[in-house]
Design a protein around this nucleic acid. Structure first.
Lengths: 190, 190
DNA sequence: GTCTATACAAAGATAGAC
DNA sequence: GTCTATCTTTGTATAGAC
């Protein structure tokens, strides 16, 4: 099970996270994986197919991490949110990479429709999950129940994605940690 | 009145805001401006030169808007911040565009060094200005003086840039307005 | 200053041998 | 499945005429 297909997906994902969609080529992946361009087309006929598959797999991976967090945290809603934020903090180790879909969102209008669809799906997944946690926090009066939970959830996502992007550009990835701390403080203060 | 140069910059700026750096070409600009590709090279020998010039002009324009705001708002610090946020809200009218430097930051690692430098400069301008307002708000005890003003400033920038990016991808640009309202509420609540 | 023409490289993609 | 070979288009960039 050497999994050429997976190695292609791995390589493509890393390149998409650091360079985005338009700036990467079959040649880049070919160089990393050690196969010829044409062989990549065997697995993924078009560049859009490849990017779509990468995002699709990424979505599943992220959902998996969330399921694991839910299994271990139970009804500890702040803990769940903490795990969620933790997923953003890992980029401090690879400061040229950001969230796959954050990277792709920067070029959203030029993405093939099928890729846009997967990116949409990723953000929908994220927003739905954050919203579910937010509602729990409100039910438990840990967050002000008067606040609009949908708006709060969108803000959490935007803030974290923005901090990744700005953190990378300014070379100060601790902005991600700052955003996490300020978001939690805000949610408690409202 | 060399007009042409400005029309090239105008076109390039719009294209960069909607499609990013890698996905645009001299041909795209040529089509919009109505001159030949080679004529663009006369003004801007390389693509990097062009993008650098676009960001440089953008920085000056934004600084100008800020100066005007300062002239009319005086010591009304919340009003100054309101004007600042207003600059992000204009993208609701052109929902495929985002802040020029937000768009470029998404591809930061592949930008020519000279362009990275201008993008860095833009974010430094922004952070310095927000920080100056934050300090004034704290001096006037309108924002908790205990809070770290540098961290707060970075968060404001990240949050607004992120809301633009996520707003465009999800087709819900009112996220920008939401972010503004929540940031202001947070600053007052700390 | 703007054009035509062109050089040169890289991209996405396909055909067909092995 | 992976390769070589090739096609076609596009992109950046330059030379030189007008």
């Amino acid at each position: 099970m050497s999994g050429t297909q997976d190695r292609i997906l791995d390589s493509a994902m890393g390149l998409l996270q650091s360079r985005g969609y338009s700036a990467i080529s079959y040649q880049d992946i070919s160089d990393e994986v050690g196969i010829r361009k044409a062989s990549i087309h065997y697995y993924f006929p078009s560049k859009g197919d490849l990017a779509k598959a990468v995002v699709h797999r990424y979505r599943a991976e992220v959902q998996d991490v969330i399921k694991q967090s839910e299994a271990s945290r139970g009804a500890d809603y702040w803990g769940l949110l903490d795990d969620y934020f933790h997923a953003y903090l890992i980029f401090e180790e690879e400061p040229h990479k950001i969230c796959l879909c954050g990277s792709l969102a920067g070029e959203y209008p030029v993405l093939p429709e099928a890729v846009q669809g997967e990116v949409d799906g990723f953000f929908a997944d994220q927003l739905a999950w954050i919203l579910s946690i937010m509602k729990k926090l409100q039910e438990a009066s840990l967050v002000n129940p008067e606040a609009d939970s949908r708006v709060l959830s969108g803000w959490v996502l935007s803030s974290m994605q923005g901090s990744l992007m700005i953190g990378r550009a300014t070379g100060e990835m601790q902005r991600v940690l700052d955003a996490k701390a300020l978001l939690i403080a805000s949610l408690k203060a409202f």
